[in-house]
Nucleic acid binder design. Structure first.
Length: 298
DNA sequence: TAGATACCTTATAG
DNA sequence: ACTATAAGGTATC
């Protein structure tokens, strides 16, 4: 398979961009670092590691490899990766404008400063859905490991640059897995959730993309139809895959932050607390503030 | 409808 | 070494 190469000049996009924090901040579990373990706790960002993922172009898997060298994104792929990277890494997001639209708050400001340049990602819906079903009561490193295992065990292979890569499994491929096989990968009680959700999609009973276009809270309800998907996981998929930047996933870290710094926003149940903190974070781009705070505190 | 509890597995703390 | 605890929660009662 041929290799194409290219480079994106980040100066042509608004605001700063940092690849490492964008792909290693627990939003996407679909990228692998080519030169070693992710989430190494070093706390150092702005590295120039190569990252790899397998995308699908009209159903055909293709490897995309990318690294950041200062204000350039260098890439290698069997396909033209330019528009793929632009979309998946949300390069057009205007961070300074988003920050300006976020109400001033010490914790949020500190979070922005700590990893300034981190963008939200825009992952494909099904892999994102499965990733966050797996995320229940898990650490980010293990969630990432699970997705690698799922791809290795059930995903299609693709050759690139003399190596064999595995695409994330399709709904059909995952629906064909048995619960025992999934438990053997270490999924624990999430195994039937993953299998049943994959089956729902494979059978055409529901698809996460059906949420797109719905009003935010209706979109969240649409996603909670899937097995193993409650409000929190639904919010993650809305934010990291379906372009709902106002979604604020209420995870343990954000709940702690609310208790400590935004006690007025604690309304007891998920929906009401969600509305309150979304408002406190400025509404339209509230998910950006959530993601910065999560990454800052984690 | 709000509240309590079980659930897999692993890494880390004590 | 060994046990307790908690990890980007959800389903069920």
């Amino acid at each position: 398979m041929s290799m194409e190469r290219g480079a994106l000049a980040l100066s042509e996009f608004p605001g700063p961009f940092d690849l490492q924090s964008t792909v290693e901040s627990g939003q996407s579990y679909l990228w692998d670092r080519a030169d070693g373990e992710m989430y190494d706790e070093s706390g150092v960002f702005g590295g120039d590691h190569w990252y790899e993922t397998v995308v699908r172009v009209e159903g055909t898997p293709a490897v995309v490899r990318v690294r950041q060298v200062e204000d350039r994104l260098e890439w290698e792929s069997s396909v033209d990766a330019m528009s793929i990277l632009r979309e998946r890494l949300r390069l057009d997001d205007d961070l300074p404008a988003i920050r300006a639209a976020t109400p001033d708050d010490d914790v949020v400001e500190a979070a922005f400063d700590a990893s300034w340049g981190m963008h939200l990602v825009d992952d494909p819906a099904f892999p994102s859905l499965i990733s966050f079903i797996c995320s229940a009561q898990m650490r980010v490193g293990r969630i990432h490991g699970m997705q690698q295992e799922l791809a290795r065990a059930f995903g299609s292979t693709v050759e690139f640059d003399g190596r064999t890569y595995h695409a994330f499994p399709t709904p059909e491929q995952l629906a064909a897995a048995t619960e025992a096989e999934l438990r053997d990968l270490g999924l624990g009680y999430r195994a039937p959730y993953v299998r049943d959700t994959a089956k729902m999609v494979a059978d055409g009973e529901a698809h996460p993309d059906e949420a797109v276009g719905l009003a935010y809270e209706d979109a969240r309800d649409s996603l909670t139809r899937f097995v193993g998907v409650g409000d929190k996981v639904a919010d993650c998929v809305l934010l990291f895959a379906l372009d709902y930047l106002e979604a604020v996933p209420l995870d343990t870290w954000i709940r702690t932050t609310i208790e400590e710094y935004f006690p007025d926003c604690d309304r007891g149940d998920y929906a009401d607390t969600s509305r309150a903190i979304r408002e406190a974070f400025g509404g339209e781009y509230a998910g950006y503030a959530q993601t910065y705070v999560f990454h800052y505190l984690r």
